[in-house]
Amino acid sequence: MMQFVWVLHKDLFVEWRARSRIVGLATYALVMLLIFAFAVGTDTTALQQHAGAYLWLAVLSASTLLLVQSFQQETEAGALDGLLLLPVNPVALFYGKAVANLVLLTLLAAVALGSSFFLYDLHLRGSLVLLCLNVVLGTAGLAAPGTLYAALTARAPAQQLLLPLLLLPLVVPPVLAVVKVTDLLLVGDPMNQLSSWLAVLASFDLVYWSLTGVLFARLVEE
């Protein structure tokens, strides 16, 4: 348990030291939001209607970059092998890394969400607490499988291509749910679907977070 805390602490500390990378990624997400607006045109209503989709697409593509980079820290100088020989428990290692990625992704999503309110002239119709919960649950759906797949593709050539290729089909369900909930919170929820979609999202997270930990442990033993 202590190892989990220290792995998390270590990962966040390393990212803090390389914080210009996070700033770069957040800017990248922002650029994506702008590009979507250009692609759609100046029709603000259309932008507002599909804001959830644009927002999460921006976060999704920035997150694959983030996952690739955050795992490169571990492999470029053999740090991961060193950790396993210490020995650090692989399960603690996985959840430490996954939670660290969750924190970073949430930060990224928060920046993108904030700027989309500003750029797309959005108005929140649901509760702010639920919106925050939605962001955390949504990024959790990316963080756990993302960490596993970053480890899976870590030593492969063309990781930049392989990671999104494998990860995106896997995260279709949470992306569907998180976009849906965001839209419901932004344009209103006349049919009261919100809580059930949040429940769907939470149950995805539960399945992914438990399955990926076991698979990761088996993966790094090799």
Partner: peptide
């Protein structure tokens, strides 16, 4: 050996995902 483990992990994750995708898309 590495290829076997990597393939197996990705296969398991992708297969478990199939029903989840099915129901979420159905609902969506």
């Amino acid at each position: 050996a590495r290829r076997m483990v990597v393939t197996a992990v990705a296969t398991i994750a992708s297969f478990v995902n199939v029903p989840v995708v099915y129901f979420s898309v159905k609902w969506w």
